[in-house]
Amino acid sequence: MTRIGLIRHGITEWNSLGKAQGVSDIPLNETGRKQASDIGDRLLLEERWDILITSDLSRAIETANIIGSKIGLPISHIDKRVREINCGEIEGTTEEQRIKKWGSEWRNIELGMEKFEDVSNRGVDFLNDIACTNEGKRILVVSHGALIGLTLQKLLPQKFPQTYIDNTSITILNKKEDKWKCALYNCTRHLN
């Protein structure tokens, strides 16, 4: 069995302000660093991991480095396939600003956003590839909310018609004999 722990990066200033981040390279804030430290402490106590992979965006890399320092595991690979959805022109804006600029139907306007299907396809391709090349391993992946959520919806549509992924939550997937199962979803008990 291959086990993959999907972790959303710690919170950033833009997350706190409700701004769309997408591929804008926004660093963690102090709360985000504390969250990353907290999940690192939790992971150290709960189970051993073999491999640590992260998105190429700094908020994910910083989260992975903090976790890795806690569990004694360096980042083994940085992978662009698990970077956040490209939000095009809406990056750096709040919902209120989007409505003011483009109207309440802004989601129906072509604003350069990456298509959800493209995001979920690259997420599923990544999971299948990483599970195949690391069969029987326990792999932590630090990524982003939309990427994780859309990937889960594509991979396990019956279980995940909708998703919400909290900062530094962990979702655990197991793959055995070409079947994916979700053992844990969006868990943040380390933040309480």
Rank of each mutant, 00 (worst) to 15 (best):
L6K: 11
R8E: 13
G10W: 06
I11Y: 03
T12W: 08
W14F: 14
W14S: 01
S16Q: 12
S16E: 13
G22N: 08
D25L: 08
P27V: 13
P27Q: 12
L28S: 11
N29L: 11
E30T: 12
G32R: 11
G32E: 13
D41E: 15
R42Y: 15
L45A: 15
D50R: 00
I53Y: 09
S55T: 07
S58Q: 03
N65Q: 14
I66A: 01
S69V: 00
H77Y: 13
D79G: 04
E84R: 06
E84Q: 10
C87N: 12
G88V: 12
E91Q: 15
G92A: 10
T94S: 02
I99Q: 06
I99N: 06
I99L: 00
K100E: 15
E105A: 07
N108R: 04
N108V: 00
I109E: 07
I109R: 14
G112Y: 07
E117Q: 12
D118R: 07
S120R: 01
N121M: 06
L127Y: 09
N128P: 03
L140D: 10
V142Y: 03
G145V: 07
G145Q: 09
L147F: 15
T151F: 12
L152S: 06
K159L: 14
K159I: 08
K159W: 02
F160V: 01
P161A: 05
Y164N: 04
I165Q: 05
I165V: 14
I165H: 02
D166F: 05
N167V: 11
T168H: 11
I172Y: 07
K176T: 15
A183P: 00
L184M: 15
L184Q: 13
Y185S: 01
C187W: 05
C187V: 00
R189E: 04
H190S: 11
L191F: 00
N192Q: 14
